[in-house]
Structure formats: C-alpha cells, structure tokens
Design a binder for these strands. Structure first.
Lengths: 80, 80
DNA sequence: CAAGAATATCTAAATTTTAGATACCTGTTT
DNA sequence: AAACAGGTATCTAAAATTTAGATATTCTTG
C-alpha cells in the first residue's frame, strides 16, 4: 500500500472526491473519459489505493466543478 | 519522466516550494530530516522530477510555514 | 584555491501505477 | 426467479515511478 495512505487527510480528500463526482452526477466511466484514464484507475483512486497529486486535484476540480483550494484548506486543518 | 510533469502548473508549484524553503531558511538536508525522507528525494522534487501529492503538500506547508490552499489557488488559475 | 556546506545526479531495487479484463453488486424487466 | 444492465471493484502482469544510498558536482567563504 502506498505511503500517504491511511492518513486521515488522505481519507478526507477521497471522500470529498467521491462526493464531488456524485454531485456532478457522472459515473466513474464518464469521469475516466474526461480525465483520459481508465475506469479502474478512478476506482482505485476512490477506494484510497492511490495518491492524488496536486495538479491532478486541480484537473479533477475543473472536470467536476469544485474549487481545489477549498478542499485543501479543509483537510489541511486536520491532524495527520 | 513522470506524467503530470511538464505541466505549467507543476512547474509553478515547484518554484513555489523552492522559494518557500529558501524563505524558511533551511537546507534540503534539514527539510528532508523533518519530512523523514532522503535529501536526494527533496532534490528530485525540487528539480521537477517527481510529483507532489496533496497530503505531502500539506505536510510541506506545516514544515515550511506556508498555506497550502494559497498556492493551490494560485496555480489553479493557470492554463495547463 | 582549499574546505566544507549544499545541491544534484546515478543506479539498482522496491514500490506504485497502469491498462485491460473480468468479477461483483444492485436494480429492473420479463 | 433468470436474464440483463449500469455501475463499481478487483486482479494481474507489465510499465512507470520512487526510493535509498552513494557519489559527484556546485557553491560559498576564508
């Protein structure tokens, strides 16, 4: 298992991303298409088996319509 | 070379991180110690050969004393 | 220019990520 | 209840990335 994983903040990030996709009303397959990756990758991402890099978070924000800085602010205030 | 690399936003992120360490007045070795990684890893990071994950950015903010949300906001407003 | 500090580069091993296939739900239709 | 469908999760092997550690290079500053 990757390293940053298991960190509370990573978990929070993940649940935020899942929520964001849900609110955007699109499926993993659709999100994958827009991000030009495979659905299995999105599944792994959302199940916390993969880290999210900063630029990727920004891209996800563009696709799903959320403000990446917002979520960073939220999770930054948690204890690791 | 990693994927997100070469992205303008990644480059901007990197230069911000370098600047932040410089302002914090610590060396790569010291930063590495605080982050519990090797100096070579910090060097790779700062030379843009490695992605920065979201939780890592937050930790860097804690160690170097910057607001991670701030930098995300800044670079999010650039074109990829 | 020498000495030391700081940063960069290299390599091989370890870890992680990926595509692609396939399996697993959870409804729904017949 | 069986067959189907849409959506998500899991598996595997290959590809890509990351890492530690060693070593080299590049500053500084006396």
């Amino acid at each position: 298992m990757p390293k940053t994983l298991g960190d509370q903040r990573h978990d929070k990030l993940i649940s935020f991303l899942i929520e964001a996709r849900s609110e955007a009303g699109i499926t993993q397959v659709e999100l994958a298409e827009k991000m030009k990756v495979y659905q299995s990758l999105i599944a792994r991402l959302e199940s916390g088996q993969r880290r999210v890099d900063v630029v990727e978070l920004i891209k996800l924000g563009e696709v799903l319509g959320f403000d990446p800085a917002e979520i960073v602010k939220k999770i930054a205030n948690m204890r690791g």
